[in-house]
Design a protein around this nucleic acid. Structure first.
Lengths: 140, 140
DNA sequence: TTGCGGGTTCAAGCTGGCTTGAAGTCAAAT
DNA sequence: ATTTGACTTCAAGCCAGCTTGAACCCGCAA
């Protein structure tokens, strides 16, 4: 009933067979049947793999993704909330990065790190122990 | 004039001496003087290191950061613009990730991948060749 | 019967950005 | 004279998430 071998499963998911073997070895695909020593995948496993694929694509680690699937009862919600919060932080950080880069673009010199007084002042503060986070916090 | 050894440089920047040696080996800190075989860092190198630190912190690779510093004339602007565009993409992707996770939270079941019809439908489409990007594109 | 396409295992390699460890050098302080 | 402490080099290890390679098995078709 609907069991397909590793090659077909990999094709349907757009993954490499070696990746599926790796997931197996890591214990991320839970229980899969074997026929004559060969891995056979059913709908459950394929969906699990699909979930891993999405979750990994959106930045979760494979372990976290598997933890969400394996959490008993409603516990997965906590993990998901944590991940959403982490992504919030990530966005904030990336926006800070864009500010930094955009600001650099506004500098009229050809070698900002050598010629731009503002940039040099910022860099010199870093050299004197100010952390990147402190700098970022200032400019918010 | 103002030359400090690697340990002090590392302290001031909040980095590990081994990281500075690694940057040296990779050719990322351009030219630094040696005194009796020891690396000595002047203001120029410290600023360069500070720039690498910021740039790396905001998500650029060390190679990219060095490329920005070493680009002749105004060429660094192009690299910076590319990086800003990449970060735009990243933010879009992360927001998509948040949508996915938030949507999952709305599901009332305890095991979405097994019990939630909407989730299962989505996963089954992935199993049939739809890419994650296609799914994301639909929901925009 | 031979070959082919798919599977299997295990071991090693890859990326990036370092860290860690072993063994040696060197100047200054005791 | 010796010990400390900071430095040097080179080699190897670490993380995730795989890929690649070698050597082997297995069933089916020509």
């Amino acid at each position: 009933m609907d069991l397909i071998p590793i090659g077909q499963a990999a094709d349907r998911l757009g993954l490499n067979p070696s990746a599926l073997r790796y997931y197996d070895e890591r214990g991320l695909v839970s229980s899969l049947a074997r026929q004559a020593g060969r891995r056979m995948y059913g709908p459950e496993e394929l969906r699990r793999l699909a979930f891993l694929k999405i979750a990994h694509h959106v930045g979760l680690s494979l372990d976290t993704a598997a933890a969400i699937l394996d959490a008993p009862g409603p516990q997965w919600r906590q993990t998901v909330r944590e991940q959403i919060a982490e992504l919030d932080q990530l966005i904030t950080q990336v926006q800070g990065a864009q500010k930094f880069l955009t600001h650099a673009l506004e500098c009229p010199t050809d070698h900002p790190a050598r010629d731009c007084a503002t940039m040099i002042a910022t860099l010199d503060r870093l050299v004197d122990g100010t952390t990147v986070d402190q700098l970022a916090a200032e400019h918010t």
